[in-house]
Write a protein that binds this DNA or RNA. Structure first.
Lengths: 200, 200
DNA sequence: CTGATTTTAGATCATACGATCTAAAACGGG
DNA sequence: CCCGTTTTAGATCGTATGATCTAAAATCAG
């Protein structure tokens, strides 16, 4: 019978996410992680494997509690148009509410992957694609129900919303100004004939 | 009379840009830079200062030969609407033409700045802002001349184009697919009543 | 109690990192 | 020639890095 673990997995993964999110993978040392996670280096290695594997686990943890949950919640709403608007509103509020101005761990990480790690790139791409797909499904459903006016090609509309959100995510880290983030989202919604973002 | 330099500054800065662009600042070691630049570590330090200063110099070099030159060229064109469309077309073609799929050094770097370096963040933000300003100037001038239809607020239109371009830049690194990049740009242009991107 | 197993704690390893040091080289001036 | 200055070359430094090692601790079963 082995000695029981002293750490709470959720708590330590939260701590790891926090560090990686703020500083990025490369600039975060294993000692800094040990400090944040309140674990020794050996314990981290025992429990999570090497640094890259911990990073991967942290991403997964972040996505489960963040992007995936939010897409599911918004998509469960009866109105596809309002789902888009609400998703954008929530994205902006979360970013603006982050005192550390970290933007989005997924987007940050996607840009930091080096060519030496195509597996990580593909993983991140698959996750990013869930955003684009969410937008597309909403557009298609909204047009079928007549809630969203026909206009440009549905694929292109989804791509516009996708790139718009990615841009907002970039700005959330480097220039988190409400007028800028809201203006970009408001314009995308308006030009696509979608309802405005709900007020908070 | 000092010993003359052996290196060509432009060539070595090109080499540094290449490395930083591909791998990012943190993941690129000074020894890798020395190899690429065909200079010793001490010579690099003598000529350019520490790693961060070299990075800054490399960014400046990249921007002079890239973003700044392109904004100036497109803005000199007689048609503000065509300037926007042409700028987007060029951005996409440059990204898709890059076999290393590096995206945009400016955007990549902006996301990699850690909170410990606000000065670098501000520098990068100022550079990014020149893109937004370019779009705004074109929108305003195009509307004055009647070439661009009135629609949503000019500031918001500029923000939409800006976030759209940032998103395209992100995708240029992580998922450089022509249909995706072109679709996002095409949708932004179409919904703002702008002309399509010129064919290549 | 011993044994098996996993976890923790602290030290340590092998290597890499950014940066610096020493000395020779390269140049023109006097 | 010597001198002054900067650059180059190669070695080295002090520290940090990701990872590992050793041994004690914690647990239940027999």
């Amino acid at each position: 019978m082995a000695r029981p673990r002293k750490f709470d997995e959720t708590a330590v993964l939260d701590a790891a996410v926090d560090r990686f999110w703020t500083q990025g993978f490369e600039a975060t040392s294993t000692r800094e992680l040990a400090e944040s996670m309140q674990m020794t280096l050996a314990s981290i290695h025992n429990a999570f494997g090497d640094k890259r594997t911990l990073f991967r686990r942290s991403l997964e943890h972040y996505l489960n509690g963040s992007l995936r949950a939010r897409i599911a919640r918004h998509e469960a709403a009866p109105s596809p148009a309002a789902a888009i608007a609400g998703f954008l509103r929530e994205s902006i509020e979360r970013s603006l509410g982050d005192g550390c101005r970290r933007g989005c761990l997924l987007v940050n990480s996607a840009l930091q992957v080096t060519p030496a790690d195509p597996e990580m790139r593909d993983y991140l791409n698959a996750e990013l694609a869930t955003i684009e797909d969410f937008f597309r499904r909403c557009i298609v459903r909204g047009r079928q129900s007549g809630e969203i006016p026909a206009g440009i090609d549905a694929d292109d509309a989804a791509r516009l919303l996708f790139s718009n959100l990615l841009g907002i995510r970039v700005l959330a880290r480097v220039r988190p100004e409400r007028s800028l983030l809201e203006g970009a989202a408001r314009a995308a919604l308006a030009t696509l004939g979608l309802p405005p973002m709900p007020d908070i």
